[in-house]
């Protein structure tokens, strides 16, 4: 069994008010390390056995069609063992 991970992030030029809210909450708690914060989504897709190249290509297609909105988001697909 393996997990195919899809990470979706807003494109850098798209305003991320959620990330900004997190960034402004951190120093209030004494965490002063963050210059900025961007918030995204992570999907974990479980598949049987080792994922094939065809399977990964399918996941990329799904990431492009449903999991992300290419107008405002970028995505990254990788396999986690």
């Amino acid at each position: 069994m393996a997990i195919i991970v899809v990470e979706v992030m807003l494109k850098p030029e798209i305003l991320d008010p959620q990330g900004q809210a997190v960034a402004s909450a951190l120093p209030r708690l004494g965490f002063t390390f963050a210059k900025s914060v961007r918030q995204g989504k992570r999907f974990e897709i479980e598949v049987d056995g080792e994922p094939t190249e065809a399977q990964i290509a399918e996941v990329e297609k799904a990431a492009h069609t449903l999991l992300s909105n290419p107008v405002i988001e970028n995505f990254l697909v990788r396999v986690e063992k």
Partner: peptide, 17 residues
């Protein structure tokens, strides 16, 4: 309509959340 690509762009979280 934006998600369908019948209209361009997207609607995102309000600036003040």
């Amino acid at each position: 309509l934006c998600e369908s690509h019948l209209l361009p762009g997207a609607l995102t979280r309000n600036a003040d959340l």
